[in-house]
Amino acid sequence: MEAQPFTTKQKIFNFPLIKIILALIVTMALVIIGQQVIGKLLGLTSLDRNYRNLIKGIFVSALAITGYILFFKYYEKRKVTELATNNLAKNLIVGILIGVILQSLTILVIYINGGFNIVAVNPVSFIIIPLTVAFTAAILEEILIRGILFRVLEEKLGSYNALIISAIIFGALHLANPSATLVSALCVAIEAGILLGAAFMYSRNLWFPIAIHFAWNFMQSGVFGAITSGNEKTESLLVTKTVGSVWITGGEFGPEGSFQAIIFCSIASVILLFLCQKGNKIVKPYWKNK
């Protein structure tokens, strides 16, 4: 039996840009509404502000995951395997290790150059706020950028084109951050946009880039007490002072804007892309499949 051709309506709804816009609207609407509701409910309790934010972060993250799964399950009529829990422990452990190592190497270069000074050590409870921010941002941003934008674009444009476009957009979104410049946005696009996209290509599972993203941000702001993407410092385990060349420290944007961060993350990206190529995980653009 011959397959029936797509109707005009089906063609419109399967167009990548339409799919991306609808997925973003549904997912973000669910997150924003849920955030407001849980915020009001937690405001009625006597819980400490840090713990309220922690619960809110968990709730919002769960909503983002649920919204994504439900949208693509019914919109694309498929099982959403990119958030499957198969090999969850492996993806999380390896991803966290990669993020921890890359961020630690970045800070190590600042330290070797005499620009990283530990002023004091705070109680462990001080990591609650950066922990909450790190895992919430990692889950939301990976679902939106790698899960929706990159994955949908990849289906039509192929892996490398989708990787470049999603990385540029990811970097550009950071231009809205305090102390951001075109150079810092380019740094984010190269070191994070490419790395996290390559991580998804390799694993075909969002938990892997989520883990890398989380560990990078948490180590940066929660442990080393550094500025993250130009935002104000939060509470952290270590109270530190960073001085020295902007090329090494990243200046007011933080270590993400440093030269060594680009180098270390680019090396990791090249390794992952090599493994993707070797494992035949690269998707060709649709015009090369004709």
Score class of each variant (00 low, 15 high):
E2K: 11
T8L: 15
T8C: 12
K9G: 08
Q10W: 13
P16G: 09
K19Q: 15
I20K: 04
I21A: 13
L22F: 00
I25F: 02
L30F: 03
L30M: 15
V31M: 10
Q36S: 13
I38W: 04
I38N: 04
I38F: 00
T45Y: 04
N50V: 09
L54K: 12
I55T: 14
K56F: 02
V60G: 06
S61H: 01
S61C: 08
L63W: 10
L63I: 11
I65M: 12
Y68F: 04
I69E: 10
I69D: 10
K73S: 05
Y74W: 10
Y74C: 03
K79R: 14
V80R: 01
E82M: 11
E82W: 02
A84C: 04
N87Q: 07
N91T: 08
N91R: 06
L92N: 12
I101P: 06
Q103G: 10
S104T: 15
L105T: 02
L105V: 03
I107K: 09
V109R: 09
I110P: 09
Y111R: 08
Y111T: 12
I112T: 07
N113K: 11
I118V: 06
I118R: 02
V121F: 12
V124G: 07
S125E: 02
I128L: 11
I129Q: 12
I129E: 11
T132S: 02
V133S: 08
A138K: 05
E141S: 10
E141V: 11
G147N: 13
G147K: 12
F150H: 06
V152K: 12
V152W: 05
V152L: 05
E154I: 06
E155C: 11
K156C: 05
G158V: 14
S159P: 10
L163F: 09
I164E: 06
I164Q: 05
I169E: 09
I169Y: 14
G171F: 00
L175Q: 00
P178W: 09
A180M: 09
A180K: 09
T181V: 14
L182K: 08
V183Y: 02
S184I: 02
V188F: 06
A189M: 05
I190Q: 13
E191C: 14
A192P: 01
G193V: 08
I194Y: 03
L196F: 15
L196T: 05
F200V: 13
M201E: 14
S203G: 03
R204T: 12
N205E: 05
W207Y: 08
W207F: 01
F208S: 12
I210Y: 08
I210N: 07
I212K: 00
A215G: 04
A215N: 11
N217C: 07
N217I: 01
F218S: 00
F218Y: 04
F218K: 00
V223P: 03
F224R: 07
T228V: 09
S229F: 06
G230P: 04
N231Q: 04
E232G: 15
T234V: 07
T234K: 03
E235P: 00
K241V: 12
K241G: 07
T242M: 11
S245R: 13
V246L: 10
W247M: 14
I248E: 02
I248L: 01
G254M: 06
P255Y: 04
E256N: 00
F259P: 04
Q260C: 12
A261N: 00
A261M: 03
F264D: 07
S269P: 09
V270K: 15
V270N: 15
L272G: 12
L275P: 06
G279N: 14
I282P: 05
P285N: 01
K288D: 03
K290T: 13
